[in-house]
Design a binder for these strands. Sequence first.
DNA 1: GAGCTCTCTTGACATGGATCAAACGGGCGG
DNA 2: CCGCCCGTTTGATCCATGTCAAGAGAGCTC
Lengths: 263, 263
Amino acid sequence: MRTLFATLAFGAGVSDIHDSAMDTNRKDIHNSDIPVLCRSCEARHKGMCGVLDSAELVALSRHTRLARHSAGKELAAEGMPVESYANVMRGVVKLTKVLEDGRQQIVGLQFAPDFLGRLFAPDSAVTAEAASDVDLCRLSKSGLERLIAENPKLERRLMEQTLRELDEAREWMVTLGRKTAAEKVASFLYLIATHLDPSADSEQKGRKFILPLTRGDVADFLGLTIETVSRQLSRLRAEKVIAISAVTQVDVPDLERLRKRCG
Amino acid sequence: MRTLFATLAFGAGVSDIHDSAMDTNRKDIHNSDIPVLCRSCEARHKGMCGVLDSAELVALSRHTRLARHSAGKELAAEGMPVESYANVMRGVVKLTKVLEDGRQQIVGLQFAPDFLGRLFAPDSAVTAEAASDVDLCRLSKSGLERLIAENPKLERRLMEQTLRELDEAREWMVTLGRKTAAEKVASFLYLIATHLDPSADSEQKGRKFILPLTRGDVADFLGLTIETVSRQLSRLRAEKVIAISAVTQVDVPDLERLRKRCG
DNA sequence: GAGCTCTCTTGACATGGATCAAACGGGCGG
DNA sequence: CCGCCCGTTTGATCCATGTCAAGAGAGCTC
């Protein structure tokens, strides 16, 4: 991990030697003309960069740099201007909003390879905070916006991610508005189990993962208190729907059984 | 109203005589080359059609027809294929999701001149239902998708509406997750007061409107029961924050005072 | 390894909103 | 005009979840 950082950080600009002229359609069979930073990146395939060819990746990588942040770091603040967008490469970012008196609600979680940032708005409507340690691939605001204007495929891809986020937000509104505390906690675990490890074999019956959120975060996500979250987790454990070996270490032996608890 | 219907319905195709060749930049000073259906439409200015010039409007109007529905009509069903998009021209459409056991949550309200429909998805993730009597300008799915592919401005406009909807959904998640019943009801009234009448003078201190939703709808929107909604409305009335002359007739004498109740 | 701190868990109690029940009222058909 | 119907309001009670408080476990410093 420590070494990865150096590799990626210094690798970012290296491929600029590449000739950006009209060899746009060449396939990247050998990866030789893909920027180093992109080679191991989730977003390169499933994220927004999946629509870019190697020349475009190279062009984009000129406006790009890896940023590594540890858990708790505030990445953008509600109501404050944002000067860059980002792709989540590793870890989880929470998007929160607060009421005047301090009540807080998590309104979104972003996993690799999600795009981070509110396009076309001068400032952020939410606070973005690293929930776990995260790696971001930061993109300059103007650079990406220019690229979007030139590249309809990219705009389309971002449109699709935005629509997916809207679907997810609406799905979550049902959870917030109509589910019991027990169902909320089950729904949360199910969400994490199915989103956290993109490489997981989807045919597998169960999942093990390290919770990237504290109990407080979970409470803020579900519109509950820490105590209620804790009690419901204990109940799920008592009923053998989950096993918790350490506070953040969750084992779901049977995803389908968990899903049945989601309401 | 009765006559308007006939005018619009038959007017829709009339302007097809217009020459769609390269006079794209002409301004519509006299409205003479704007399709009849579009002339009185909110979406024409503030909605997605605002980015279209008269030639494009004419082209679009070939795939367009006015549809009038009365309150309660189901316009799209969760999980079912959709064959058309629409613009809301008048009235309010509610988007709902249900849990298996019948618990229901409204996940969005669409007012004129909002765009209605989930772009690029084969079927709807939500149920859309006319909350009041509504007029829709229906657009064929394939027709609009083709137009979007050809017209970056239109795609951008729809992207912006989608982003705004996402912002609103997240705003509402705070309401659902963290506000008290009293704050929820106040927030709902505030939302309606500020969204319902697009022509309202924004400098005016108060608002009067006819609630386009039943108490049951309001409850489904707020994640509450009918009884709780009713009680909170009574409380707001007792405290003179609102006046209710008939069940659906609400008078907010001081918007700012209402906003203070929103948490 | 003792003690500190921080997060989490568990218990006891309080309360906001749900549930159950009944009365009210406006619109509509007869 | 009467009476029914359906949506709404209001009241009485219950219960899920919040609040307050104490204890448990894990990591950190000295």
